[in-house]
Design a protein around this nucleic acid. Structure first.
Length: 666
RNA sequence: CGGGGAGUAGCGCAGCUUGGUUAGCGCGCCUGCUUUGGGAGCAGGAGGCCGCGGGUUCGAAUCCCGCCUCCCCGACCA
């Protein structure tokens, strides 16, 4: 028993070699009868914890990750379990995280993590660190408060809008809260990277971000303040970027597999990041807000924002004379085709928007044309225009450019209106289009002859039933949550921040960058969504806050459990010990709710049966493990669960990516 | 930002239409006794600026005005 009076003094038991004092106190204070009498005093807590030699035992985490390898008594846990979820929590995963005392909401999109939640985060983070390190990464920690100047240099101070939270300091200088860290990394690189010999590099951090999301929702899935693993690759050339990009793709695949999240990579839009190509890693779930376009035949997978499809080849026919046709009340494609007895594919649909283009002070009017059997994809349209933002035109604005709602047409539109025509509409002859006149359409409109498009591009949305652009098989859509992404940034940030290096040919060249993000809290939320049942969470062994929960029933059970707890701790198994002395039902219900992979129960009954009852949260019958084999059994069962995880996660992915009609088999 | 909904005890809710005793219920919490393998029973108890501010009234949780916050649906993201 350690001497309570010993004060190790500052410095000892600190960073690196010592245990996290609080974690230890929890274990050893309680074992000291002197401290069980009343609330432990601050002195005793601090001194006992710090004075214990070598008290952190076992665990597989590195010594630099305090808090990961520590057991816990529920009597010391902070955070109550709730029988009913707070109102407003809609999806099951979020409800269970609230009910289990993992997280609490503080404000819109702002969350506190309680001890259990923190432990899940730490587990995920240790997977992230291992994979980033394995990919050649080095960890940094970058500021959350950024001087505005940084963002002005890349133009994003103006470009990103209110999602970037801004404030002034006491001297009226502008600052931003970090929503991402490209600017800071590029600035650092400009001083740290001098020669081609300093490249390639990969820096990463696990750091807070703030994005003033216009609409946070679904709990941790879309928070405003969130923790993100963000990595940045620095390379000499595009070939180097491609190599690191591929390496990150592999690392991400490994990360999600290890965490037990069924996620797939899809091609994606680059959004505000800019650059030349990106992938998003999507958790496949109906609660997802993104729509993915998938081909079961060839594996084509893209976010709908950028997905393409094989458009029909228009029948060639001679161009006929333009012809007015009265179409009273036919202000929609549906009514128009009914009125004229033609197919939607024979019509042209006009969509009117105002587009904000970064260098122009005022948004410009845009008239976009697709065939009536297709719909406009706003992201594609924005990309075709180089626009940062699109919004629907108001009625006044429509009037101003000489259009009539429902009969809008590129013919006779005001000068200066940007006309974007989908490539398929441009190639289809003799379309029926609006006449910019109430109740009147035009037959035989031909792009090129009657309409002079500013841009011809693919702006049509792909969807269910469209033919795959690659193999022609039928595409289908799936919902997903974006849990990670990887961007090829190129030299945009290096150019802006002056981050260059001296190459071996004696010339200064800009550093080629990539950036790679994973939302840690979002990943946790997705895991809760994926791994639960009606009674609670069912954490994958790799991310569970504790691998095993120890329940103790009755006085005899409690006594035996105390000893067993010590043995498990000794064996490095990090048990969560329910030492509250609650009734069986309460303990079991909480154990189910909290969701540790294994549950051990010690009671008069189990001891009479020869040992300890063991049960898995994922299901199956309870078994009795002989008293002196428990630690070994737990250890080997956890190993098996770890091994099974990758397989079961792969199966979960397969179940959602294979086409439904393919039998699963026995 | 547009549209809809909600703020009453730690959590979930009723009361409000038609103002009027001390603002209720379930769960949770505290004390005692009994119980003790799937959220126990009995008894006793604690806990409320009824979101905030103003107004109407003899009197406001309740009616009126303003504001704040949160949730949901649409335009945006890890």
């Amino acid at each position: 028993m350690p001497d309570l009076a010993v004060d190790p003094g500052p410095g000892e038991g600190g960073e690196g070699d010592g245990p996290a004092p609080d974690a230890l106190c929890v274990v050893d204070l309680e074992a000291d009868p002197r401290l069980r009498e009343g609330p432990p005093g601050t002195r005793a807590w601090r001194f006992v914890g710090a004075a214990l030699p070598g008290a952190r035992r076992g665990g597989d985490g590195p010594a630099s990750a305090p808090g990961i390898v520590s057991p816990m008594r529920m009597s010391r846990l902070f955070g109550a379990t709730l029988r009913t979820a707070p109102g407003g929590a809609e999806n099951a995963g979020h409800q269970l995280l609230l009910r289990g005392g993992y997280v609490r909401q503080l404000g819109q999109g702002i969350f506190s993590y309680l001890p259990l939640g923190v432990r899940v985060l730490r587990r995920i983070e240790s997977v992230l660190r291992e994979e980033m390190d394995a990919a050649g990464g080095v960890e940094v920690s970058l500021p959350v408060v950024h001087p505005a100047e940084l963002w002005r240099q890349t133009g994003r101070w103006q470009a990103v809008g209110p999602e970037l939270a801004r404030f002034k300091d006491r001297r009226d200088r502008d600052y931003a809260l970090a929503m991402t860290h490209e600017e800071v990394v590029a600035t650092l690189a400009s001083t740290e990277i001098r020669s081609w010999r300093d490249l390639p590099r990969l820096v990463y951090q696990i750091q807070l971000k703030f994005r003033d999301d216009p609409r946070p929702r679904a709990g941790l899935v879309r928070a405003r303040e969130f923790t993100m693993k963000d990595a940045y690759s620095l390379d000499r050339d595009v070939a180097g970027l491609e190599a690191q990009y591929a390496r990150q793709y592999e690392a991400y695949t490994a990360i999600f597999a290890r965490c037990g999240l069924p996620a797939i990579a899809v091609g994606a839009d680059v959004g505000m990041m800019g650059g030349s190509g990106a992938h998003e890693f999507m958790y496949l779930t109906p609660i997802g807000e993104d729509t993915l376009v998938l081909c079961d035949s060839c594996g084509y997978a893209q976010n709908r924002q950028v997905a393409t499809f094989r458009k029909p080849e228009p029948e060639p026919e001679p161009l006929r004379e333009l012809e007015r046709v009265e179409t009273p009340g036919a202000s929609t494609i549906e009514r128009l085709t009914a009125a004229l007895g033609i197919a939607a594919a024979e019509t042209a649909k006009a969509v009117l928007v105002m587009a904000s283009v970064p260098d122009q002070p005022e948004p410009s009017p845009v008239l976009a044309i697709v065939r009536g059997d297709m719909t406009v994809n706003e992201t594609k349209l924005a990309n075709a225009l180089g626009a940062s933002d699109l919004r629907p035109m108001t009625d006044d604005e429509i009037d101003e450019i000489g259009c009539v709602p429902g009969y809008a047409s590129p013919l006779g539109v005001a000068a200066g209106v940007v006309v974007v025509v989908d490539d398929c509409a441009a190639a289809t002859p003799n379309l029926v289009a609006g006449a910019n006149e109430e109740g009147v359409h035009l037959r035989n409109v031909n792009v090129g002859r009657d309409v002079e498009p500013t841009v011809v591009a693919d702006i049509a949305a792909a969807g269910d039933g469209d033919p795959c652009a690659v193999c022609g098989a039928t595409l289908r859509t799936e919902r997903g949550v974006e849990v990670g992404n990887i961007f090829r940034l190129g030299t945009r940030y290096a150019d802006a921040m002056g981050a260059s290096f001296l190459d071996d040919d004696g010339t200064q060249k800009p550093i080629v960058m990539g950036s790679y993000g994973i939302g840690v809290g979002r990943l946790m939320a997705c895991l809760a969504e994926e791994h639960h049942d009606e009674s609670g969470l069912r954490w994958p062994v790799s991310v569970a806050p504790f691998p095993v929960q120890l329940c103790a029933l009755g006085d005899e059970g409690l006594l035996a459990a105390e000893q067993l707890y010590g043995e498990l701790v000794e064996a490095g198994l990090e048990p969560l010990f329910d030492d509250r002395g609650e009734r069986a039902g309460v303990q079991f219900a909480d154990a189910d709710l909290l969701g540790m992979p294994l549950r051990l129960t010690v009671s008069t009954r189990s001891l009479g049966a020869g040992g300890v009852e063991a049960r898995e949260r994922s299901g199956g019958d309870a078994i009795v493990v002989p008293r002196d084999e428990v630690a070994a059994w737990v250890s080997s069962r956890l190993d098996e669960l770890r091994a099974e995880l990758a397989v079961s996660t792969a199966a979960r992915v397969a179940a959602r990516t294979a086409s439904p009609q393919v039998g699963v088999g026995g």
